[in-house]
Structures are given as structure tokens and as C-alpha cells.
Design a protein around this nucleic acid. Structure first.
Lengths: 151, 151
DNA sequence: TATAAAGTCTATAGTACCAGTATACTTTCA
DNA sequence: TGAAAGTATACTGGTACTATAGACTTTATA
């Protein structure tokens, strides 16, 4: 049940982009290098990841001097599930319970397959969290913990 | 978030072994070939998987003529989580939230890392299902569905 | 007690995927 | 016009996954 490095770095980058530099400021733009440095990620690798996120409509970018990446929509409208699926594919642990990439698993009777029933529950539990947690939720929670710890 | 073939086959085999041949009969013993045929798995591959489950105390075996594998404990005392961990390792999507294989993920402040907080929720949701679903639960559910569909 | 049926164990092969690197290109701004 | 930035694609080394092979041990029974 692992999150790939690709997925991890992508999620970290998106969270970084969701943290407003100043309170109530415009959606912030950051450069690849900036994010890479801050999150300790290989810039070249991150480049590919951000590109994939852009091509799937989650990021926008500006080329040239003073360019960079920024969120395509407000942080509260982008969920972890959307990001995850772009970078790591379907959420389901087994294809026969996948919503976005269904494939039969070959058991004689899918309707009554016990493994399928159990893995369906797992899929739903994961999707429930990922699809109902937005980037805004994440940064809000971060700040709440920070405040609580007095930082 | 994928279940490996190893994990899938192992879970299928354990579920097969948990289905009593006759109502209220003794823990049933099945041979590798028998399970492999029924679940359409390569017998040699399944062999390794069952061996791993045996070496981790989830299965017992009997060698020689008329031998086979059988559950080491009653089906209601073996959870999907136990099987999963033997075959696919930790449940956590990222090491910094793993209970059984913790490792720092390298973010500057783990306590307030948003990704870690979210992935912690995911881990708990998965573990909650896997550790609270026994083989007996699975076969019971299978039978319930079968009955409902009139088979 | 010989034989065949069954599990045990270790090694290895092929493949796919992951993580990262390299390089050439295009766009934009000053 | 040149430097800063993103775009695009190819390549590579490593590792993990999915088996397959073969030699070995244990056990029942004829």
C-alpha cells in the first residue's frame, strides 16, 4: 500500500503552493527550483511531476523570466485524491474494485468474492479521505497544529 | 495503492482454506495443487506464498502423502491485516506514519507536516478495516451474499 | 522397505516500474 | 538579443515483482 516518490513529491509540492505567502494574498507562484530546494527534491525529477500535474489541469504555469507554477484552482477545490490519481493512478488496491480503471480479477463469481468485498471497503475508505480532503484542509490543519504548539 | 499478486493470491488461498467443506467440520486441509487449480494460480508461485504464511505462523502443514495446508488458528482469529503484512509489508502509504516500520520522511517538521497528517488518516482507515476483518467475517459475508442471490 | 505423494528450500530469469539524469527546445521579459 | 524559465522526450541504472526450476526431505502405504 505504498505511495510512490512521485506521488509524495507531487503532494508536497502542491501543499507548498497552497500555503499563501501572506495572509489572503493571491494564489502564489513558485519556481521549480524554489520548491525543490525547500522540499529537498531533485529539481529535474520535480520538473516532470509538475508537468504531469499541469497537463492534467491541476496546475497552471507561466514561462519565461519571473515565471513559475501556481494552482489552477483555489486550494479548497483541489483534493488530495485528484493529485494522487494523476501521479499514482487508481486508488483501488485491486482492479476489480476500481472506479476509474475497472478490470475483472478472474474469480469465478465476482458478486460473491470475499476478497473483492473486503477490498471494496478498503478502496472506499481510502477514497473517502483522499477525495474529501482539499489542499486548503491540509494547510489549515498544519496551521492549527503549529498554533497549538506555539510556533 | 496496490495489492501485489503475492498478496492477492495469499489472501485468496487463506479464504479458500477458511471455507469449511462441510458445515461444522474440522479445519480443512487442502493441497497446493488443489488451491492453485481452484483459484487459477501458478502452483509453484503459490508454494512460496503458502510457505511464507507458514513460516509466519498463519498456516500449518502436513508433509507426505495425504498432506496439505490448514489454518494455524480458527478463521475468526486470523485477520486480513496479518496476512497482508506477511506478504506485502506495512500497511502505511508512507514510512513516517507506519506503526510497524517507522522511518522519518525528511520533512523539516514532522509534527506539523500536512502530508503526514493526511496519510496518517489513510493508514488508520486501512488498518482499521484490515485488522478488524477476520477470515470468518469474509466467508460469512460471502455466504450471506450467495444466499441473498439465491445460489 | 521401496515408492510415490506431498511439502521445503534456494537460486535464477525475465519483465516492468521507479527514480533520477540528460539534452534539446520554446516562450517570455528586460 | 540573451538569459531565465518552463516543455518535452529519451535514456539509464537499480530494484521489486512474478514467476519457474530443480534438488531435497518427510510421510503414508503397498
Amino acid at each position: 500500500m505504498r505511495l510512490s516518490k512521485r506521488g509524495e513529491y507531487g503532494l508536497r509540492a502542491m501543499i507548498a503552493l497552497a500555503e499563501p505567502a501572506e495572509k489572503g494574498s493571491a494564489p502564489q507562484m513558485m519556481q521549480i527550483k524554489e520548491i525543490a530546494l525547500r522540499e529537498q527534491i531533485s529539481a529535474k525529477f520535480l520538473e516532470q511531476i509538475l508537468l504531469a500535474l499541469k497537463n492534467n489541469g491541476l496546475l497552471h504555469s507561466k514561462m519565461g523570466v519571473g515565471g513559475g507554477y501556481y494552482l489552477a484552482r483555489p486550494a479548497k477545490e483541489i483534493t488530495l485524491g485528484q493529485i494522487f490519481r494523476v501521479l499514482d493512478g487508481p486508488v483501488a488496491p485491486i482492479k476489480c474494485v476500481s472506479q476509474m480503471a475497472y478490470e475483472p480479477c478472474g474469480c469465478p463469481d465476482e458478486e460473491t468474492c470475499g476478497l473483492r468485498l473486503a477490498m471494496g471497503d478498503v478502496r472506499n475508505a481510502i477514497a473517502d479521505i483522499l477525495d474529501n480532503t482539499s489542499l486548503a484542509d491540509v494547510t489549515k490543519r498544519q496551521n492549527a497544529v503549529r498554533k497549538k504548539m506555539g510556533r
